[in-house]
């Protein structure tokens, strides 16, 4: 069997998701016996030209150049997997989608006219077809490894679909929302991190984005009953996966 030809591409992002491949450490050494990282700029100089069997894409699309590039990636890839909050929902930089990007340029740069960006930071799925999504800010390295191993064996990779609450219950945590009255996005957020934030005594901040069939408007109602201020509710949803459709429904109620 010939080795799976894998590529890792980066767009607007922090590098944290592709770092998760390198964080596999000892597993990585075994993994490279099974697959070929044919393009992975952060890890190696050698580049094998496409087409690629499996392309992992980190980051959101936020410049005209990136729009061209993602289309090229689509052409060269049999399967595209977007990885992390930036690539699945636009990420934290998508906060500018509610603002005036020109004003942002003026605020950050002495010479804003030299900076070329799109008005919005969007997930790659806005521009090309995407085959799978691995969520999280960052994506979990265990999920990435499991994805590759399932995919290599010809399986349709199984990814989480349930809300974080399921994992939280399995971890044996007391509910921070019910018991402490801490605002928590767990009921509407995709599982996958192992309910980390509630395990450390804080509410989930939704970095895995909405779960399948996420009832964000219901949670919004609950937050209102708890007498949270509109601004607080909005900021809670308006974070790393704020630009996802389900979270936006709540955010835009308060815009």
């Amino acid at each position: 069997m010939s080795k799976l030809k894998v590529a890792v591409f980066k767009f607007s992002s922090c590098d944290g998701c592709q770092l998760q491949f390198l964080n596999l450490e000892e597993e990585l050494i075994h993994l490279i016996d099974l697959i070929d990282f044919a393009l992975f700029y952060e890890a190696r100089t050698y580049v094998e030209p496409g087409p690629y069997d499996l392309s992992f894409v980190e980051g959101s699309i936020s410049t005209p150049h990136e729009v061209e590039l993602i289309k090229k990636v689509r052409d060269e890839s049999k399967v595209i997997v977007t990885v992390g909050a930036c690539a699945t929902s636009g990420g934290i930089q998508a906060l500018r989608n509610w603002a005036n990007v020109k004003e942002f340029q003026n605020y950050v740069y002495p010479r804003p006219e030299w900076i070329e960006v799109l008005k919005n930071a969007e997930p790659p799925s806005k521009y090309v077809n995407v085959d799978y999504e691995v969520r999280g800010c960052p994506a979990s390295k265990e999920q990435l490894l499991s994805f590759i191993l399932q995919f290599m064996r010809g399986k349709i990779p199984i990814l989480p679909i349930s809300p974080l609450c399921i994992e939280c219950k399995l971890s044996g945590n007391l509910c921070v929302l019910v018991v402490n009255g801490t605002p928590c996005l767990g009921p509407v957020t995709m599982a996958g991190c192992g309910a980390l934030c509630p395990s450390y005594g804080r509410g989930c901040y939704g970095c895995y984005g909405p779960s399948v069939d996420s009832r964000t408007l219901v949670l919004n109602r609950r937050f209102k009953e708890m007498e949270l201020k509109p601004k607080e509710i909005q900021l809670l949803f308006k974070q790393f996966a704020g630009w996802s459709r389900k979270f936006r429904e709540v955010i835009e109620e308060y815009e």
């Binding site: 936020s62 410049t63 150049h65 004003e103 942002f104 340029q105």
Partner: peptide, 19 residues
């Protein structure tokens, strides 16, 4: 450097200190 600008300083305005 052609890494896309992400404008952190700009969108931090209006965020709560704890975030």
């Amino acid at each position: 450097i052609f890494e896309a600008p992400r404008f952190f300083e700009a969108f931090l305005r209006g965020r709560k200190y704890v975030e």
